[in-house]
Design a protein around this nucleic acid. Structure first.
Lengths: 221, 221
DNA sequence: CATCTAATTAAACGAAGAATTAAATTATGC
DNA sequence: GCATAATTTAATTCTTCGTTTAATTAGATG
């Protein structure tokens, strides 16, 4: 006869007894969204189970099902209410009708501000957009990409026609280069910080370095 | 009584009858390594099961176990015999004792040649080194990083002291910038190629663009 | 030709973990 | 007090995993 183990619970986690909680447990739903986001960022969306999110939030899987329905709907809620708003806040800061230098500076500064406010964004971006099979690739390509990169590339092409941008550059690749100079350093910060013992490099130094590199690189000089 | 399903096999795949194969099935082992690598690149190392590799190679899981032992040893073999050699081939092309401009050009060209020869490398790098929890992060940080990035940063710092490199740049961040300008475009190529309908941009155009950007960006002028 | 060995599949095993559901439990609001 | 909302418990049903044992066949050795 099999000895029925008493379903050992992870130490230190107390999921509470059943029943409705006493008085206003304030705002549970946003906390659940945050827990899901944290799991997505740490482990990847595909590798995150409902149980893992429940564990992260100190709650049972059944409760997640009660709030969001199935796993797909929960994922959708996180994307709609956490990820897309973050990206939208970035788009609105780009001055697409000014000089190229101002646009570039705003882009670099905007990415810096973005990762300061949403530190989880670069890692999520890398895993879920950049990686093949990433769960956000489709959403980003259809709802973000047509607005930001296309507009930037058009602006750069126009600047080249007007002679205010180095003609040896490719306007489309320049968009890629700018992302590589901002998103990549943000996503790899944990690596290079420890590799170079560079805890002295903050957001300001990074921005100054990037703009110094781009300012000269783009000039027609 | 449960109806015992006849273990339906994926259509089109014929795993052969048992028994030793007729005559030289030439070099099975490297083919198994390639299959494993393909799975790692497509799905990620953590998400790749022995069974998936076996399916990819048209072989049974038991055979993988026969050749490599357990899953960990197979992964180790792929890293040692496929991934690390690719990276080592890159390191040996960097002229660390010449001018900065030549070093930068060699870096950009070297990454270009590397991804032409090992097209799977950027995607693998992004998922397994850049992503938190990536399976290769440790190996790269201990066996690759101390040699390449440290040497580059030292070289840049020296050039700044000699007045041949823009003093507004940070020598350590410049290493990060160069990786962002090469590795990131390579890894995201499938995305921007389709996004910009840029099938006309080949390896040469990319290299020319990147060097044009860096050449001016680094100058003291 | 007989036998030993090497390479391969088949099949089964046991463990783990998944999503979802049904039922029990408790507090709140009317 | 009674209906309802919020929560856990426990069960159900699947899938998948890595590994092992046994069977099978071809080559190698004598």
């Amino acid at each position: 006869m099999a000895t029925k183990r008493p379903a050992r619970r992870p130490v230190g986690v107390r999921p509470r007894t059943p029943g409705r909680p006493a008085a206003a447990s304030p705002e549970l739903r946003p906390r659940l969204l945050d827990a899901a986001l944290a799991c997505y960022v740490r482990d990847g969306i595909a590798a995150t189970s409902l149980r893992a999110i429940a564990r992260e939030a100190g709650v049972t899987p059944a409760l997640l099902h009660y709030y969001f329905g199935d796993a797909t709907q929960l994922r959708q809620a996180v994307v709609d209410e956490r990820v897309l708003p973050a990206i939208a806040s970035f788009r609105s800061t780009l001055p697409l009708d000014g000089e190229v230098a101002a646009l570039v500076a705003a882009f670099v500064g905007g990415v810096g501000a973005l990762v300061e406010r949403y530190p989880w964004l670069p890692a999520l971006w890398v895993r879920e957009v950049l990686c093949e099979g990433g769960a956000l690739r489709d959403v980003v390509l259809t709802r973000v990409a047509p607005q930001i990169p296309q507009a930037l590339a058009a602006k750069f092409a126009q600047a080249q026609r007007e002679g205010t941008l180095n003609p040896d550059l490719d306007p489309r690749l320049l968009v890629v280069s700018m992302m590589g100079l901002t998103l990549f350093p943000a996503a790899s910060a944990p690596i290079w910080r420890s590799l170079f013992h560079a805890s002295d490099i903050g957001a300001d130094s990074l921005r100054a370095h990037t703009i110094a590199l781009l300012d000269r690189g783009l000039g027609v000089g």
